[in-house]
């Protein structure tokens, strides 16, 4: 029984366009040119309880729109969504109690007051007793490594501390479905790692389902076994991250360390050369010929060391999203 299911979900926006300059503005004032934008088209997917799924795609691919439809903030143009047994659009209280939305570029913490005040407010929203609130804040702040920061005005906190406090505020009611939109945006590498560890821990402890978007592939590779790749509003890939690598790159990366530097030049002709440095050769070799080619190389040349890996997924997806050719 999936906890999230989306069937034939589409969202169409009407956007009015304006040419630059005063002339364009005047024209825009009297006559609006409306363009229809398909933000999301015919999305179908299911997510099971406890899964952490990465939602990837370039800017404007429709990730945020989809997340907001799953939360019930944006209404669908067609199709249907079910999250935790509810239709999100109805914004039933029992539904809203089970979910949370964290956005890296927006904050709910009260700027001029310490995070503690925002937590108290959220505790009142979700009807938590003072004792329970305290217990949960203690627990989550330990997991997030937050301490004195909770008593300092939000405006005085670093971005990393703020994000952690933001997570705490969003998870105080212990939601079981988490929608995270770029939760590590702008964070330094240490804070990113801390947030990732925290999310993994939260998922493990409470069996929470997490749907996460991020432009940092490190977030995706360290947290998500499964990814949804969306491009131009359409679902391009839904499956294991490791399989996506196969799909995106039909090659394996072979690192060869040779005893004889002269042979390096010849070896490089057996595949697509990535790097070539004296004794070391890095080659991309098609998966289907891999054993055959490697046998030939091993027979013909003196090889000191050999290493076969997948090309880094970050690079593959990055390249894919950049080129836009899917």
């Amino acid at each position: 029984m999936p906890i999230i299911s989306a069937r034939s979900v589409s969202k169409i926006y009407k956007v009015s366009e304006k040419a630059p300059g005063l002339k364009g503005t005047l024209k825009h004032f009297f006559e609006r040119r409306i363009r229809i934008i398909k933000a999301v088209e015919q999305l179908n997917f299911e997510i099971s309880k406890g899964e952490i799924v990465g939602f990837i795609g370039s800017n404007g691919a429709g990730k945020t729109t989809t997340l907001k439809m799953l939360c019930g903030l944006i209404h669908l143009s067609s199709g249907s969504i079910e999250v935790a047994g509810h239709n999100p659009e109805q914004r039933d209280r029992n539904f809203l109690r089970q979910i949370t939305l964290v956005m890296g570029q927006k904050q709910q913490l009260i700027w001029d007051l310490p995070p503690m005040d925002s937590f108290r407010l959220n505790a009142a929203v979700y009807g938590l007793s003072d004792r329970e609130t305290k217990r949960r804040i203690n627990e989550l702040s330990t997991m997030l490594e937050l301490d004195n920061e909770l008593y300092r005005p939000v405006r005085k906190l670093s971005l990393g501390q703020r994000m952690k406090a933001e997570l705490l505020a969003s998870l105080l009611h212990r939601p079981t479905v988490l929608f995270l939109d770029e939760p590590t945006l702008g964070l330094d590498i240490n804070s990113q790692i801390r947030v990732r560890q925290f999310l993994a821990e939260y998922n493990y402890k409470y069996g929470a389902t997490i749907l996460l978007t991020s432009h940092y592939m490190g977030d995706i590779t360290s947290l998500c076994k499964r990814v949804l790749l969306i491009h131009d509003g359409k679902l391009f890939y839904d499956g294991l991250l490791s399989d996506l690598t196969n799909k995106l790159s039909p090659y394996r990366l072979v690192k060869l360390s040779l005893t004889d530097s002269d042979s390096a030049h010849f070896v490089s002709q057996f595949g697509q050369l990535v790097e070539y440095d004296d004794h070391l050769v890095k080659l991309l070799i098609a998966r289907e010929n891999l054993t055959e080619v490697l046998t030939t190389i091993l027979n013909q040349f003196k090889v000191k060391d050999i290493e076969v890996t997948d090309p880094p997924i970050e690079q593959l997806i990055g390249k894919l999203l950049k080129s836009g050719n899917i």
């Binding site: 019930g72 903030l73 029992n94 956005m103 927006k106």
Partner: peptide
């Protein structure tokens, strides 16, 4: 930021 209001029960 209306998002944060609408998401609350």
């Amino acid at each position: 930021t209306l998002d944060f209001v609408l998401i609350k029960p």
